[in-house]
Design a protein around this nucleic acid. Structure first.
Length: 277
DNA sequence: AACCCTGTCAACCGCCTTTCA
DNA sequence: TTGAAAGGCGGTTGACAGGGT
């Protein structure tokens, strides 16, 4: 994924960093800090240029760098901030603790930009289908003799989302994780589902927490999200959309109840669409 | 199995800004 | 005030992975 290591004409190593180099840089910076990046590699025993060391530290080795999938909240924030500030990645990164400008830039170019480019108003038939999908979701949510725990509900819904995912690109980066998050006992593998799917504000990271061995699904962050959502007075699954006065405008609400971070997305014709409000 | 295409992301490049003597 | 050095930033590149044919 990265350039193969090589030495330039000045004997400076370039390309991918080895774990030994990472260890050296990390150990040095954690002990002495970085007072001069140009001089630092000399003292740290690295055959790298200062810029390379700085970049490696800032984007990868810093202890507060957060890796892993982006949450829907983070996505919404990136989109919002990009609309406000343009390609000011460092400025955007300053609003997302643990995320680096480089990472956000990559994420924008590889995922979010396409959604924005292909943003379009859904047709009424698509919206009807979307609505129907939501009804199915809520029915599944309240199955199991009406005694569905929050955690169980989350699995049902994650699976529903998975069923609706037929595209390579999806609104939430959670989807690849959703695929692996199916209940081992869940046999409802209907892949012929609607071409529409719904994206909600999962912390995609949370899906990595389960299933556990005894099929007792656990996800603290997901549950926290549900709790937050329900206590906000919204019925996440049974009322995922708010219809505005204008028949052509729908929104799905999440997080803050659909005020600042609402979006609607659906998949159609090999492309997913994302509507930020 | 081999090839091609696309997505991803770490790393590089070059320019701009800031700092300091 | 000025110029060099260092830091910071955004655009771009290149290699790998994985899916499709």
């Amino acid at each position: 994924m990265v350039r193969a290591p090589f030495y330039d004409e000045n004997g400076i190593k370039r390309g991918a960093w080895s774990s030994e180099e990472d260890d050296k840089l990390r150990a040095y910076v954690e002990r002495y800090g970085y007072w001069n990046w140009r001089e630092l590699p000399k003292y740290a025993g690295l055959q790298r240029c200062g810029k390379s060391c700085r970049l490696r530290w800032m984007n990868y080795l810093r202890p507060d760098v957060r890796r892993g999938n982006y949450t829907a909240e983070e996505e919404s924030l990136i989109i919002k901030l990009h609309e406000e500030h343009g390609n000011k990645w460092s400025l955007i990164a300053a609003n997302l603790p643990g995320r680096t400008d480089n990472e956000i830039k990559n994420y924008w170019h590889t995922r979010l930009k396409k959604r924005k480019t292909h943003n379009k108003t859904p047709t009424k038939s698509q919206l009807r289908e979307l609505d129907r999908s939501c009804d199915e979701s809520s029915q599944l949510c309240h199955s199991n003799n009406g005694e569905t725990s929050e955690a169980e509900s989350s699995i049902n819904h994650s699976h529903i989302l998975d069923n609706h995912d037929h595209g390579a690109e999806v609104v939430s980066p959670a989807v690849p994780i959703l695929e692996s998050s199916q209940s081992p006992t869940d046999t409802s593998t209907d892949t012929s589902g609607s071409s529409l799917f719904i994206s909600h504000a999962y912390s995609s990271q949370s899906y990595t927490d389960y299933p556990s061995e005894n099929n007792n699904y656990q996800s603290s962050s997901l549950e926290a999200f549900y709790q937050e959502y329900y206590t906000a007075g919204s019925d996440f699954w049974t009322q995922p959309f708010l219809s505005s006065q204008n028949d052509d405008q729908y929104s799905t609400c999440f997080g803050d109840g659909g005020t600042s971070s609402s979006h609607l997305s659906f998949y159609d014709d090999g492309m997913d669409y994302y509507f930020y409000q």
